Amino acid sequence: MTDLQDVGAFVAVAQHGGFREAARKTGSSPSQLSEAVRRLEAGLGVRLLHRTTRSVAATDAGQRLLEQLTPALDAVATALDVVNGFRDRPAGRLRLNVPASASKLVLPRILPPFHQAYPDITVEVIVDDSFVDLLRSGCDAGIRYGERMEQDMVATPIGPRQQRFALAASPTYLERHGTPKKPQDLLQHTCLRGRFSSGAMPPWEFEYKGKQVLIEPNGPLIVNLGAAADLKVDVAVAGGGLVYLFEDWLQPYFERGELVPVLERCWPAFPGPLLYYPGRRYLPAPLRAFVDFIQAMRW
């Protein structure tokens, strides 16, 4: 019978797109994973992975095998996790896929008390602002906003129930260029913009005189939203232009006087983030503990 460890090695390499990344995720070495995949291919008599010096990709046979193995291995992991119910406290690994905003504004308040309550659970956080397939990424749960939720998922609020986008500039910038009085004035100002990994560059949204106003501002800087948002803030602090970002992200700069709120009466509010995970009957013990923990928290 094929060694299940070899099967697991193949799945890890195929899911992570290479031996080095799979080794980093699994705690193995690239050479160990490579040898395990070779044994599996030899035993099955078919090539499962295309290997080049730069990349690794599943063959047609490998892709078909991966599709069949993923739910089966999930079932094995779920069965093994049942023994967690016989422990004094749950243990294991919890993998979360979250956007940069959640890693900065939500998780820092949750993780310290969660680790104190569950010291045997290791939380691995993957920061990714793109849309991901949780199951294929190997994550147990994710954090996203409602409009970017995967179908057939269970969702529960995590973090603040309501948030706002804020507009800000440094005192120096406002002294030189004046303070905008209405959203349309931003078209005459230097604005620091952001772009999603998909390439989309969202407009700046405001609520003005009871109506939604969308502004497509201009400016000398465009950064990746999430990954480089702090660069945008730093440039704004240095007097380089206006920045539009989560209010909670900018709040420390307001408190220190490095940035000044602009058009505050027009800032739009929106529902806070959600923790989402596959809607299966049995949840792994680490995920169950995390869900129960955040549902008991008060924000």
Rank of each mutant, 00 (worst) to 15 (best):
S198D: 15
L111D: 10
P112K: 11
L250F: 08
Q116Y: 05
L44I: 08
D129G: 07
A23R: 11
L167I: 04
C266E: 13
V233Y: 00
P203G: 14
Y276I: 09
I222L: 15
P286H: 11
H50R: 15
G85W: 02
V125P: 07
P273I: 04
G138V: 08
C191F: 09
L287E: 06
A58H: 06
S198F: 07
L259C: 11
P171Q: 13
Q5W: 05
S55E: 12
R193E: 01
H50L: 13
I222F: 04
F86S: 15
M201A: 15
V132Y: 01
A36C: 04
L186W: 02
G210E: 07
L40G: 02
M297D: 11
T156Q: 09
G199A: 07
I126S: 14
T53M: 10
D120T: 08
L221G: 03
Q184R: 12
N224Y: 06
D230G: 01
D140I: 01
G199P: 02
Y173K: 11
V235A: 13
L263S: 02
S28Q: 14
D234W: 00
R20L: 12
G226R: 02
T59E: 03
T52L: 06
D74I: 07
A75W: 05
F86T: 15
L48D: 05
G17T: 09
E35T: 15
P268K: 04
F206W: 00
T122W: 00
L231K: 11
L263D: 04
L107E: 10
T156E: 10
T179W: 01
Y173N: 07
A269E: 14
P99R: 10
E216M: 12
R161I: 06
V243M: 02
R64M: 10
G219F: 00
V237S: 03
S198Q: 03
L231R: 12
L80K: 11
I222W: 05
T78W: 06
A269T: 13
L73T: 06
S130V: 05
Y277I: 01
G92F: 02
G272C: 07
A296C: 11
S55Q: 14
R109F: 08
R288P: 00
L107N: 09
V125A: 08
E147V: 09
E124T: 14
L167F: 03
I215D: 06
R164C: 13
E150K: 11
Q63V: 00
R109L: 13
T78I: 14
L66V: 09
R87N: 12
G257S: 08
L111F: 00
R176N: 10
E124D: 15
A229Y: 00
L225I: 15
I215M: 08
E35F: 07
A12G: 05
F254K: 08
V132P: 02
P286F: 01
R109T: 10
P220W: 08
R54H: 10
G178M: 09
V233M: 05
R161V: 11
G27C: 11
D120M: 09
S55I: 01
Y208W: 15
V127M: 03
E247K: 12
G240S: 08
D140F: 00
G257V: 06
Q151D: 14
P261V: 09
L186F: 05
L107R: 05
S29D: 03
F114P: 04
A79N: 10
A58N: 04
L96D: 08
G199H: 03
E258A: 15
G272T: 11
R20T: 14
H115G: 10
L135I: 12
A269W: 04
G85I: 02
L69D: 04
K211I: 04
A166H: 07
